[in-house]
Amino acid sequence: PKDQAKKEIEKALRNGDEEKAKRLAKKYGISDDDWKELKKRVS
């Protein structure tokens, strides 16, 4: 599910692991808009 994916990506971003977050986003098909939203929430 997308919500689970977003949680994992957000966690990776919080850990400062943007490479992992990007890989997860690609793997789960997270859209650019969702990606920006996640980045905003974390920063």
Rank of each mutant, 00 (worst) to 15 (best):
E19V: 11
S43C: 07
D17N: 11
E8F: 06
D34V: 07
N15W: 08
E8R: 08
A21I: 01
G16Q: 05
G16W: 04
K39L: 15
G16D: 05
D3F: 10
K27L: 14
I30C: 05
E37G: 02
S31I: 03
K20P: 02
E18L: 07
L38P: 01
Y28D: 02
K6D: 05
K2R: 11
D3E: 13
W35T: 01
D32K: 09
K22P: 00
K6G: 05
D17R: 06
R14C: 06
A5S: 06
E10G: 04
W35P: 00
K40I: 10
K2I: 14
A12Q: 04
E19W: 08
K7L: 13
L24H: 02
D32A: 09
Q4W: 13
E10L: 15
K39V: 15
K26E: 12
E18R: 04
L38R: 00
R41G: 15
G29K: 09
G29V: 04
D17W: 14
K39R: 07
K40C: 09
D32L: 05
K39T: 07
A25K: 11
K39P: 02
K40S: 09
D33L: 07
K11Q: 14
V42M: 06
D34R: 02
E37D: 06
A5M: 11
V42K: 02
R14E: 04
K22N: 05
D32P: 08
R41H: 15
K40W: 11
P1N: 14
K2Q: 14
A12Y: 11
V42Q: 04
K36C: 10
R14S: 04
K2W: 13
Q4C: 09
A25V: 08
I9M: 03
K22W: 15
E8I: 09
R14D: 03
K27M: 11
K27S: 07
G29H: 09
R23V: 11
I30Q: 01
I9G: 00
I9Y: 01
S31W: 02
L38V: 05
Q4I: 11
Q4S: 10
L38T: 02
K22I: 13
K36M: 12
Y28P: 00
D33F: 05
V42W: 06
R14L: 07
A12D: 02
N15V: 09
S43Y: 15
W35Q: 02
K40R: 13
L24M: 07
G16T: 02
E37R: 05
P1C: 06
K20F: 15
K11W: 12
K40M: 08
L38C: 03
K26P: 00
L38E: 01
Y28L: 06
D17I: 02
K11A: 14
D33Y: 05
N15T: 09
E8G: 03
W35F: 15
V42S: 04
E18N: 06
A25S: 04
I9T: 02
N15M: 13
K7F: 10
D32Y: 11
S31D: 05
G16F: 05
I30A: 01
E8Y: 07
L38H: 01
D3A: 11
S43T: 10
E10M: 15
E19F: 08
S31H: 04
R14T: 05
K39E: 09
E19A: 12
K39A: 06
K27V: 09
A21F: 00
I9N: 00
K2P: 12
E10T: 07
D17G: 02
G16A: 04
K36A: 13
K26H: 10
Y28F: 09
K22R: 12
K11T: 14
D17F: 14
R14N: 04
L13R: 00
D17T: 03
L38N: 01
Y28K: 02
K2C: 07
K22H: 09
Y28W: 10
R41N: 15
S43D: 15
D17S: 04
W35A: 01
V42P: 04
D3S: 10
K7R: 13
K22T: 06
R14W: 06
E18H: 06
P1M: 13
L24A: 02
D17Q: 11
E8M: 11
R41C: 08
K11E: 13
I30T: 02
E37I: 05
K20W: 12
D17A: 05
I30G: 00
A12I: 08
E10S: 06
K27C: 06
K11R: 13
L38F: 03
D32M: 06
L13D: 00
A21S: 03
R23I: 12
K39I: 15
K6F: 15
D17Y: 14
D17K: 06
D33R: 09
I30H: 01
S43R: 08
S31E: 04
D3P: 07
K40N: 15
S43Q: 15
K11Y: 11
K39F: 06
R23A: 14
K40T: 08
A21G: 04
K7Q: 13
W35N: 01
K40A: 13
V42F: 11
A5H: 14
K6M: 15
Y28I: 04
I30Y: 06
I30N: 00
A25Y: 03
K39N: 06
L24Y: 03
R23L: 13
Q4V: 11
A5D: 07
I30W: 07
D32G: 07
R23C: 08
I9D: 00
R23K: 13
K39H: 06
L13H: 01
Q4T: 11
E37V: 04
K2V: 13
P1Y: 10
P1H: 12
G29C: 05
K20M: 11
K11D: 14
Q4A: 12
K22Y: 14
Y28R: 01
K11M: 14
E8D: 08
V42T: 06
L38Q: 01
K7T: 09
I9K: 00
K26I: 14
K40G: 07
K6P: 03
S43I: 10
L13I: 04
D32C: 06
K2S: 15
R23N: 10
K36I: 13
D33A: 13
D32S: 07
S43G: 13
A21H: 00
K11S: 11
K7N: 11
I30D: 00
E37H: 03
K26V: 13
